[in-house]
Each structure stands twice: as C-alpha cells, then as structure tokens.
C-alpha cells in the first residue's frame, strides 16, 4: 500500500462520514426546533459551533438564521465541510485511489454527489429539505454498503475504517461539547420536559435514541446519555467504540506502537471519567471534550507520521 494511497483512503472515509453526520445534524435540528418554545435561545447557530466553523461563517453571513445556516452546511461551496464540499472532496480523492476500491464505490459516490449538486439549492426550504437530507444519508450508507460487502479486508480497508471512525469520534465529541454546554445553564426541574427533549435530540443527532432506550431502559437523562455516547462499547457512534475499532485495525498495520499508545491514552481518559461529577461541575465537561479532541489530534499526528509522510 502506497503511503499516498493510505492517506487518501483515510481522508475519503473521513469526508464521507462528515457528509453523513452533517446531514443527520441538520435534520435533527429541524425537528428539535419544532418542539422547543420560541423563547429558548438555542437556535441554528449551535450547528455552526458544532462543526467548529464560527469564524468562517461570520465572515460570510450576517446572522445565524435557519436559512443561512442550512445553506452554509448543505450546499455552500465556500464551506469546506458542507455536505456538498465534503462529497466533492471525497470524490476528488476517490479519483486518485479508484483502483483500490470496488468499482461500484465510484458509481455510488457519483450518484449522491450529482444528486446533491443538482438538487441541493432547491432543497433548502423546510419541506423539501427533509427528503433531501434523507437521500444524502442513504447515499452515504450505500457507499459504506458497497465497501463493506465488496471490498477485501486488506490494508486499504483498514485505513478507510480508521478514517470513518476518527471522524465519528470527532463529531460525537463535538456534539456533546456544544449541546451539553447549552444545556448546562438550564435549571434542573424548571424546563425538564424540554431538557429531556434536548438530550433526546443529542441522541438523535447520532442516531442513538433507539439503541440508547434498548440499552438503558430508563428515562432519558444527562449522565446516562453521556455515558452511552462516550463509553458504550457496542454502539458504533460512541467514542469508545470508534477508538476500539481503530485499535482493532492495528494488527493489520506495520510499526503501530505510536498509534497504539495514542489510542490507549484517549481510551483511558474516557474510561476513567466520572460523568456524574463532570456534569455537576461547570466547565468540567467541555474540558474533557477538549482533552479527547486533543487525543484524537495526536492520533491523527501519529498516523500521519507513521504511514502518510514520505519515508525514503
């Protein structure tokens, strides 16, 4: 496996996963808005915070209205992380590594990319948006479907998996960071029906609601949701699950000590966190999320150094 190809596969996985997550995020937020009372401050701006694009957004738009945020995240070419840009980048990357993936991958990426390109700008309004976003999600799932059922579990596949999982871990921590932050100011009991709606939306942003209910069998509550999305070993979008998946690819990869250590550090951080205490103390949870993010950054650095850089 060429170093350049390994790096491209990794980024392909990340961009497809990013497109999917962004589509889900937009869809869930729309539903949440319908349920919350108007006086609640939480709005569309938090989505921009989640994807970590506040500066760029501000330079392009006056205010974080629904219309602006949706356009920015869905079809704006000036946002490198919009659904359209992510799929565009994934497609450009795929072009250079087409020979390593099943041919159908290219066809499915084209399907969804052209769909987004042609329909995106007509799907910004609420009514057509939902169908559009669902189609975008289905399109990315088809790509995974082709890869999972048709691609040999060779080294290239491992880099794809690392890419999708590191991106997911990143997105999960971002959602927890921003969403719980806005939740923390809420007085317990005061707005409890809405509080639980918000926690439910956190779960739904990560398609975790149903799996959480099956797992927890209690009313949706903060510590429970946090525990599930950070520490659960079975749910594929929990940070722990993503890290364990990355760890499971290591036996197939050469010279992996540095990577193993980076994964271990972050896993320990999550495993040892006392979530009840963190939630009760202001500023603690965002700090943990920052530390996890730094851990993911180190993991990326280790991968780049070991596999992606030119090793003459």
């Amino acid at each position: 496996m060429l170093s350049r190809v390994a790096e491209n596969l990794y980024w392909f996985g990340r961009y497809v996963q990013r497109a999917e997550n962004t589509a889900r995020l937009l869809n869930v937020n729309a539903n949440l808005m319908l349920d919350l009372p108007r006086r609640m401050t939480l709005g569309w701006g938090t989505l921009i915070d989640i994807v970590g694009s506040t500066e760029r957004f501000k330079s392009l738009y006056d205010h974080a209205s629904e219309e602006n945020v949706v356009r920015y995240l869905m079809t704006d070419e000036r946002n490198p992380a919009s659904i359209r840009s992510s799929l565009h980048t994934a497609r450009e990357i795929l072009r250079t590594v087409r020979d390593t993936m099943p041919r159908e991958t290219w066809e499915r990426v084209n399907d969804i990319y052209f769909y987004v390109l042609e329909r995106g700008d007509h799907s910004l309004a609420r009514a057509p948006r939902q169908a559009f976003l669902q189609q975008a999600v289905s399109g990315t799932l088809l790509i995974y479907g082709v890869l999972t059922s048709n691609m040999s579990r060779d080294v290239g596949f491992q880099f794809l998996r690392i890419g999708t999982n590191i991106e997911q871990a990143d997105m999960t921590t971002r959602i927890l960071d921003v969403r719980t932050y806005s939740l923390l100011g809420i007085q317990p009991g005061d707005l409890s029906p809405f509080e639980s709606i918000q926690w439910m939306s956190v779960l739904r942003s990560l398609t975790a609601y149903q799996m959480y209910r099956r797992h927890a069998r209690v009313r949706v509550n903060g510590p429970g949701v946090l525990r599930f999305l950070l520490q659960n070993r079975d749910f594929p979008r929990s940070v722990m699950f993503c890290l364990s998946t990355i760890a499971s690819t290591l036996p197939a990869l050469p010279g992996n000590r540095k990577i193993e250590r980076a994964i271990e550090r972050t896993r320990a951080l999550i495993r040892d966190a006392n979530l009840d205490v963190l939630l009760a103390t202001e500023g603690q949870l965002p700090q943990l999320m920052d530390e996890i993010q730094i851990g993911l950054g180190e993991l990326h650095g280790a991968l780049a150094q070991t596999y992606f850089s030119s090793n003459t």
Partner: peptide
C-alpha cells in the same frame, strides 16, 4: 522503489 506504509 515505491514509498509504502511498510517502507520502501
């Protein structure tokens, strides 16, 4: 040689 994840 080509640069691979296993080295040259």
């Amino acid at each position: 040689y080509m640069r691979t994840i296993y080295g040259p």
